[in-house]
Design a protein around this nucleic acid. Structure first.
Lengths: 213, 213
DNA sequence: GAATAGAATTGACTTAAGTCAAAACGGAGA
DNA sequence: TCTCCGTTTTGACTTAAGTCAATTCTATTC
């Protein structure tokens, strides 16, 4: 991943949020984006019944809102602190002038946004062609890679997953029940076992194959 | 849409492709991106059975390949001319130095990429939450908007759609048969009629509602 | 105009995944 | 330890969408 701190350290201003404090509302004008330093921020959208549902939890080191700043649109989500959090706020003004005066920063954003496009395209590909089982395998594979668990996975050693199942479900575009059934399926296939928050990969190659990587 | 010509006219070099000529191969290093002036270019990917399938047809005025240039990755598709085509080629070298020296160009790409992110996010949302019928309604709605057909649609006047059904199907993540059945469904619901390449919208408001706009 | 090939449609069938309701599990606090 | 509440799992059922095969439509070429 990209090292935001390094590139943007000369910019922005620190902010602190208490648990449950609202950073911005749904549909508010996006005049700043944020880098989360500590804590967590949940992003909420209204579902078709009009109730707020969490669509993503931002974790430390992640940035959010920059696309809305650049497209001059409104935030399509509300952002609320899940715990006490520290973040850096970059105002539109500030970041636009930084881009104007510093081609390093421009290039940085161009790369980041391109990477995001790539990632999103990939996700669309997954959604449109693959079934839940493959998507789930893809989720595990990505999780393992991104958290430096490849060695453990290959050795069949257990590791913990803190993400609530409900959240895994939404992130791969399904519901808790179907997710649960697909855990069993993976178990039966001898790919991996899940008990509670503990995961044991039994066949990493097979997992990879299922994920279509 | 963005006016590429305006911003990039000082850069790039013209190229001509004959029908069936290959612009670049699958997995080739992306050292240039392209703006299509005339003709059309089909982008192919290998499906799980290893056969080439068209995933998108680039139309005049569109740009393609820029994400791969910026992320320094390989083309995830092959590009082959569907007819004789004219395009402008922007080499990586050239575009990177343009970005370095011209903050207008940087800002331009940042905006374009951000908009693309937004669009892709939206598509993911559609894929994950909506059924084929809604996605199809969304497709029509977008098509009508983008081709200045809103007036006709609202008046119930017929208009032509050149896109082959097979292509509509892939673009909304389904197959020809299911698409066909959903055309009928829309007809039965009194939303719109399709015969051959002709479309008549009977209830634009309903179409919009189905699309979830 | 007939012949053909590709595109689109239809029907019969299978399967994946969602819904609803109930049960089991698990952790935080009394 | 017991209770309670939210999460997860399970079961029975429904529905949407894919597969396969056959048929019809359409456009192009001889």
């Amino acid at each position: 991943m990209v090292n935001w701190q390094e590139v943007l350290k000369a910019y922005g201003s620190k902010r602190t949020l208490l648990k449950d404090e609202v950073l911005f509302h749904l549909d508010e004008e996006a005049d700043a984006f944020y880098l989360l330093l500590s804590g967590d921020i949940s992003l909420y959208k209204l579902n078709h019944e009009g109730q707020e549902t969490s669509i993503r939890k931002v974790m430390p080191g992640e940035i959010f809102g920059e696309v809305m700043v650049f497209t001059e649109s409104n935030y399509p989500v509300a952002a609320i602190a899940g715990k006490d959090s520290q973040l850096i706020e970059y105002s539109r003004q500030e970041i636009l002038s930084a881009i104007k005066n510093n081609s390093e920063i421009s290039m940085f954003f161009i790369k980041v946004l391109s990477q995001r496009c790539l990632m999103l395209t990939d996700k669309i590909y997954q959604f449109s062609l693959q079934d839940v089982l493959s998507r789930l395998a893809g989720f595990f594979f990505k999780y393992i890679e991104e958290n430096g668990l490849v060695a453990k996975a290959e050795a069949g050693e257990p590791f913990e997953m803190i993400v609530p199942k409900k959240e895994i479900a939404t992130s791969i575009g399904t519901i808790a029940e179907t997710l649960s059934r697909n855990f069993r399926k993976l178990h039966k296939m001898g790919v991996l076992k899940v008990f509670g928050k503990t995961v044991i990969v039994q066949n990493f190659a097979k997992l990879q194959e299922l994920a279509g990587v």
